[in-house]
């Protein structure tokens, strides 16, 4: 562990390292952002708002494939963390870039889905369902992109042999992005009744 920075950063009255504690708080606040959107969506859906039957038009195959991609990327990022704990930097570097690649695949599928939907007339302003669909999956995609950028930056540090703890931190964030998708998938793709 590096000894740079203020003493405060290396203190740990709770027993949780400062970086990880901060990420937990970050994720807790993210729960409210996504949770707020999901709560609004569910309210409208249970209310039988017109337009929500369009959930049947989303492609279950694409959604399921994306879920699979994100689950797998969660596995690779946790394997990167395990590798870095063993001190295996090269392996960690490889696993981080596998995760990055999974992010690319996920985004490509999203682009394919978006373009298909827009071409068939389901734009964001068509009705509330599509508004929610694009807002929530779009916000989620932004989180995916953000995570990928950070991951790319971290990977080179790790290969040079410092800031190992960050692999765990970005991993936690990435798992959270995965968790959000785990809930978005049934909401938008499966539950069309």
């Amino acid at each position: 562990m590096s000894t740079r920075g203020p003493v405060a950063t290396h203190r740990s009255s709770t027993g949780i390292p400062a970086g990880r504690l901060a990420v937990w708080w970050l994720l807790a606040s993210e729960i409210f952002i996504f949770g707020g959107l999901i709560a609004c969506f569910v309210l409208f859906k249970l209310n039988g708002t017109p337009g929500f039957e369009d959930a049947s038009e989303t492609s279950v195959v694409a959604g399921a494939f994306n879920t699979f991609v994100l689950l797998t990327s969660s596995l690779t990022v946790v394997l990167a963390h395990a590798a870095v704990e063993r001190g295996d930097r090269e392996k960690a570097f490889t696993y981080i870039w596998y995760t990055f690649a999974a992010g690319i695949v996920f985004l490509m599928v999203k682009v394919y889905e978006y373009s298909g939907k827009i071409l068939s007339g389901h734009t964001i302003t068509e009705n509330l369902f599509w508004s929610f669909y694009y807002t929530m999956t779009g916000l989620h995609a932004l989180h995916v992109i953000g995570g990928m950028v950070v991951m790319a930056l971290i990977s080179f540090d790790v290969r040079k042999g410092y800031n190992y703890q960050r692999v765990e931190l970005i991993g936690l964030y990435w798992h959270f992005v995965d968790l959000v998708w785990i809930f978005l998938f049934p909401l938008f793709y499966i539950a069309n009744f």
Binding site: T14, G15, I16, W24, W25, L27, A28, I31, F32, G35, G36, A39, L71, S74, L75, V77, V78, G171, L172, H175, F176, D178, L179, I182, F183
Partner: peptide, 29 residues
């Protein structure tokens, strides 16, 4: 979600305070 949180995010091994944090968040939601 629970499986990912417990195993991948290591919540299994984390201090209880983090569980409180998430349970509190979900309760408020």
């Amino acid at each position: 979600a629970l499986m990912v949180a417990a195993n991948f995010m290591h919540l299994k091994f984390e201090k209880h305070i983090v569980w409180f944090l998430f349970i509190m968040s979900l309760t408020l939601l």
